[in-house]
Design a protein around this nucleic acid. Structure first.
Lengths: 194, 194
DNA sequence: TTAATATTGTACTAAATGGTACAATATTGA
DNA sequence: TCAATATTGTACCATTTAGTACAATATTAA
């Protein structure tokens, strides 16, 4: 259990890598650039990430899910109004600064950016998006129990509407940044749940 | 007007390039690979595409628009039922083969795949997506005239719902390929126009 | 036939790429 | 104090990259 101490923390450097990956696609993000952002050298990197860039990306997807998916579940639970929390999550997208609107959903981006050879990571992104669908579906169910969502509709299907809307708005906000237009799209789509 | 005759046709080779670009992102598609698919050598390429890969991509976006946007307008006109044509366009996506479901909208993909440095091409993709919004909006208007779309709703706003739905379904079909689920998402979302 | 010219194919280059090898270093426990 | 060991930083490597230079080639018009 001896040895030279690490100068870094796994979670911290993966967060830095996510920042880089969100600015350009997997192939365009060079290891040199990633390592510079992470603040570690190649020696440390290839020791900890035996699979190189691909493993880093995989772990960044998992790390992202801990922050997004798990946090969403926790907040839904905590607030006691899961659907209200979800709707607010969407509405907030209308008002973020323009630069942030150029960023998409980390999972959806992975599906678009990864080439066919990165099969494993693509499947992981699909898995995490389906987990998001599950979370949306559970929010719909609790919304139905609270009388906030139409009870005669299949929650699973409404969950699909929501994940599809999630996928769409993350592209649309990159082409149209007007808060008013984005807000009208969001409000309009939530009518599907009524 | 003399000189060695070209062995290729601009439109043909750009179509081949589009095939390559749709399989991987801009940065990951190498010129060698592109030229092999296009069937021309570097000499011919850099003579015709002075701007290199970036110009090729730009012209491929424009070429794609001629085939998609212009064709959509023509079909809407020809069919005499613009909204029916648009809805059918979406419904067809539910039943295409799985491999095709892994491909997205060429413009939306551009927004996700291009890095910040390709500003010009990103703006072109935005322009073409906005042209699609205009087309959707005009379909809504003609649907309203024909009593197929609710008349009390702003066509521009419904156009936004449609372009956002377009953006979304092109991501969603990459994560969920079931024709039934995709069909239910499409049918459900078109309720927003009623 | 031939001058003018547009296109082609290939050899080449400089830079960047992902990854490896390994000596130097900083710690722990005996 | 020192052996054992985990981490670090750097020099290095083979490959791939986008793009250039230019001689060879195939055509048209005089």
């Amino acid at each position: 259990m001896a040895g030279r101490p690490r100068i870094y923390n796994d979670e911290n450097i993966i967060d830095k890598a996510i920042e880089v990956f969100r600015g350009k696609c997997f192939d365009a993000a060079s290891t040199d650039e990633l390592l510079a952002a992470m603040g570690i050298g190649k020696g440390s990197f290839y020791l900890n990430f035996k699979g190189g860039k691909e493993e880093l990306y995989q772990r960044s997807l998992k790390r992202f899910a801990e922050n997004l998916n798990r946090k969403m579940e926790a907040e839904m639970e905590r607030s006691g109004d899961a659907m209200g929390y979800i709707k607010n999550l969407f509405l907030k997208m209308a008002n973020i600064p323009s630069a942030q609107k150029d960023r998409g959903c980390y999972y959806g981006d992975a599906l678009v950016q990864l080439s066919a050879k990165d099969k494993a990571n693509k499947e992981l992104a699909v898995y995490l998006l389906k987990d998001l669908h599950r979370i949306f579906t559970s929010a719909v169910k609790s919304g139905q129990e609270q009388g906030k969502v139409a009870k005669d509709k299949d929650p699973e299907t409404l969950g699909w509407y929501l994940i599809n809307f999630w996928n769409g708005i993350h592209i649309t906000k990159r082409m149209e940044k007007s808060p008013e237009i984005l807000k009208s799209i969001i409000e309009g789509n939530f009518k599907l749940l009524e």
